[in-house]
């Protein structure tokens, strides 16, 4: 039964991944991508990684896809369609994808997956403790580094969004300067 569910999920993922790439309507492509991500969350649920599955849904489904949709909402109209890509580009992209697929398949098929008999369920509490532990195998350093990175990203976003207004005075001064040079010429 679980194998059947796995194959159904795998089929969904592949199908929507292809649909996402080939769709010429951008919001549809985003939604197909969402289905791919939900399918992956389904896989996590299947192997009992509930926490990871929920993270997948929250971060990718609720966060990133919503941001995508927002971007599309702001700039795109319902009736717009993306341009058809040239055959040459298609061929190059296809070849690159095939190469990537080949590398991945080769890596998977040659890796000796160890089979264990002991089944351990991962508790959320363990994950939490591990994230904040500074002993061996603890993740406190990457956790903190990522938080610093996120703060930097946030400030950067604010600066870009407000950039024109902050540099308004400066640009005015430079414009006055450039006008003077024009007069001289």
């Amino acid at each position: 039964m679980e194998t059947i569910i796995f194959y159904i999920l795998a089929a969904i993922i592949i199908l929507f991944a292809v649909a996402s790439v080939t769709s010429r309507k951008i919001l549809r492509a985003v939604i197909y991508l969402l289905f791919v991500l939900i399918g992956i969350a389904g896989l996590y649920f299947l192997v009992d990684y509930n926490f990871l599955a929920a993270i997948q849904l929250t971060v990718y489904g609720g966060g990133i896809i919503v941001l995508f949709i927002f971007a599309v909402l702001l700039i795109h109209h319902v009736e717009l369609e993306l341009e058809k890509t040239a055959l040459k580009k298609k061929l190059i992209a296809g070849a690159l994808s095939a190469a990537g697929l080949a590398v991945t398949l080769w890596a998977i098929s040659t890796y000796p997956f160890p089979v264990t008999d002991t089944y351990t369920s991962i508790e959320v509490a363990d994950i939490g403790l591990l994230l904040l532990s500074y002993e061996d195998g603890g993740f406190i350093l990457p956790f903190e580094v990522i938080s610093v990175l996120l703060v930097a990203v946030m400030i950067g976003a604010i600066v870009i969004a407000k950039g024109s207004r902050l540099s308004e005075d400066r640009s005015r001064k430079t414009e006055v300067g450039s006008q003077k040079t024009e007069v001289k010429n």
Partner: peptide, 14 residues
């Protein structure tokens, strides 16, 4: 589910 509350947040964000 052992992450019950978190699951609810995840679902509502969809």
């Amino acid at each position: 589910i052992n992450i019950g509350v978190f699951f609810l947040i995840a679902i509502s964000s969809i």
